[in-house]
């Protein structure tokens, strides 16, 4: 049924990185929370313009790394000095020294897992459907256009007010994206 289709958000197109960045600053200052900027290439300073804080992914890597460090030592201790003790080269059965390369590798491996899965989790990926992807105009985001999209779900969203804000920011084209 055609009437069931909801508006997902308002898509505003800009032609230069500077315009998009100033628009982002305006949207940030207006207090919107559910919105995003899409550009064909990374725009330096966009994080600040959007008011984004430092990524939280580091915590996942740290957690992964600490787990790897602990597990690595536990594994070697269990295998070499508990479950199947073997004396090698007259060395002690357990020491912080010889297992270290393995422990180190475990730390790196699990912190990399932490980083990659943490990133996927924070980005809510994988995502099989996104309303923007069926919007024909949005193709320009991978070519030479810059987009600001404000979701209708944002508490500050109002049809007229948001349009006015984006128009005052100098957008070149605007359309509603269907969910």
């Amino acid at each position: 049924m055609i009437n069931d289709i909801q508006a997902y958000g308002l898509l505003a197109e800009f032609h230069t990185p500077a315009d998009a960045m100033h628009a982002a600053e305006k949207v940030r200052d207006a207090g919107f929370t559910r919105w995003d900027v899409h550009t064909p290439f990374p725009v330096h300073g966009m994080d600040e313009a959007m008011g984004l804080k430092d990524s939280k992914v580091g915590w996942f890597s740290f957690l992964g790394g600490s787990t790897g460090f602990t597990l690595g030592y536990l594994m070697i201790w269990f295998m070499n000095s508990y479950n199947y003790p073997i004396v090698v080269g007259g060395k002690p059965l357990m020491s912080p020294m010889f297992p270290f390369p393995v422990v180190y590798e475990m730390t790196i491996l699990l912190s990399a897992f932490g980083a990659i899965f943490g990133m996927l989790f924070m980005n809510r990926l994988p995502k099989l459907y996104h309303p923007l992807l069926k919007n024909c105009r949005f193709k320009g985001a991978t070519h030479d256009k810059f987009y600001v999209i404000i979701e209708t779900a944002d508490p500050r969203y109002s049809d007229a007010g948001t349009r006015e804000l984006l128009e005052s920011a100098g957008c070149k084209h605007m359309e509603t994206v269907e969910d």
Partner: peptide, 12 residues
Amino acid sequence: HFSQYFLIWNAA
């Protein structure tokens, strides 16, 4: 520094 120690420790 760890590598230096580690190699010497292992070679003994």
